[in-house]
Design a protein around this nucleic acid. Structure first.
Lengths: 209, 209
DNA sequence: CGTCGAATGTGAGCGGTGTCAACATTGGCC
DNA sequence: GGCCAATGTTGACACCGCTCACATTCGACG
């Protein structure tokens, strides 16, 4: 089915708008998403966007939702690329590190999307959709399930672990730690993950990777 | 010396602008700082602001600088209100906790200023002025100086510790951890500080407070 | 003390933005 | 085939950041 030139109805304008808005958000962050520019790029009038989004914030919320999903998928891919081998408890620890590293890596590779993903928009979080924090929590539960972490240490660990991973992501993405090369960045990331792991995991299962 | 009514020259317009802008930033964050509104509140034309700031971002940078200073002072006050008593190493640990808690408390009491303080404006950080991260670093150095932390663990600890404290501040301020009452908030904060302390400090000096 | 330049403030205006209301077009359902 | 709801357009409003030409005042220097 061939599309006509400039049909009055776009077909899937909502998705197209989110696509364009996402592209704008990539440059630096949510502030770069200009509704009129989004419409312009899609080749549609600015007010057409209001048929699909209540206002600019609703559009941002949609972009944020998609960004969180992309981030979670990147984290899933990261664990998939590192199949478990060896002791399940050490594997659980390694997997947690991989998840955390993927979280941070996404923030550094796509800072604009990262900032948009965690903007304080109306939540718009479907119960079923996967989010970066959910991935982290799953990794924590896996630590308990395998016995790498005692269940007593599990309580409240979501917040603390997420805070450390999220915090280092922001500090690095915003350059708050000063200019560091990629080696220095890796060192800081590893040090942060070390801190979290050493605080959560039984010491004999702490690996170095 | 009595001020005349509506003098043509304001006298200290720059400071007045920063004051008004700070007040606006308090509501939610830097996005609430509207240059025209700032000038309106000061009772001056909008273009007058451009005699003192190159653009809106420069004004934001000034507000951010002041916000960081206020935050650092709040942290200093917090340690001052809790004078050291007892073993110097345990005291160093307690002081670190107090500093971290004060950091987080400021973020929760003044989320707008907190968000403004760490916006990615042109740094505008004088070499001498005190900043929240400097306070944290000083507390870390104090841990080493008293012997509560081994110097080997000190390397790279700034980033990790700051990340955890900063991260939990943001997550709580943005409500990313879901709605939690003040008890739950305290628990999350304590858990995060536990994580940091347990990862940094020699175990026999870890207190519970 | 007078003058004159630099500093500081004013007003109008430009291009851009989010948002809305009135109108145009179209797809799908009876 | 006709009609209604969904979807898109045009034009407008209020507001914003920023600039330019002009007005006022302060302070230094004769």
């Amino acid at each position: 089915m061939i599309k006509r030139r400039d049909p009055y109805h776009h077909g899937d304008l909502r998705r197209a708008l989110v696509n364009a808005a996402t592209e704008l958000a990539r440059s630096h962050g949510p502030d770069d998403v200009i509704l009129r520019e989004v419409a312009r790029r899609v080749g549609v009038s600015a007010s057409a966007a209001y048929r699909h989004f209540a206002d600019r914030d609703a559009l941002l919320a949609a972009v944020a939702s998609r960004a969180r999903a992309a981030m979670a998928e990147a984290m899933i891919d990261a664990v998939a690329r590192r199949p478990p081998i060896g002791d399940p408890r050490s594997d659980a620890v390694a997997r947690f590190r991989v998840i955390g590293r993927a979280y941070i890596a996404f923030a550094l590779e796509e800072p604009g999307l990262f900032r948009t993903a965690f903007g304080a928009w109306p939540a718009l979080t479907e119960p079923g959709d996967l989010s970066p924090s959910t991935m982290l929590i799953a990794a924590l539960d896996n630590l308990v399930a395998t016995g790498a972490m005692s269940s007593s240490r599990r309580v409240g660990a979501e917040g603390a672990a997420w805070a450390a991973v999220h915090g280092i992501s922001i500090l690095l993405a915003d350059g708050a730690l000063g200019q560091v090369d990629s080696r220095g960045r890796d060192a800081v990331v590893d040090r942060t993950l070390d801190l979290v792991v050493s605080g959560l995991v039984r010491h004999r299962f702490i690996g170095t990777g």
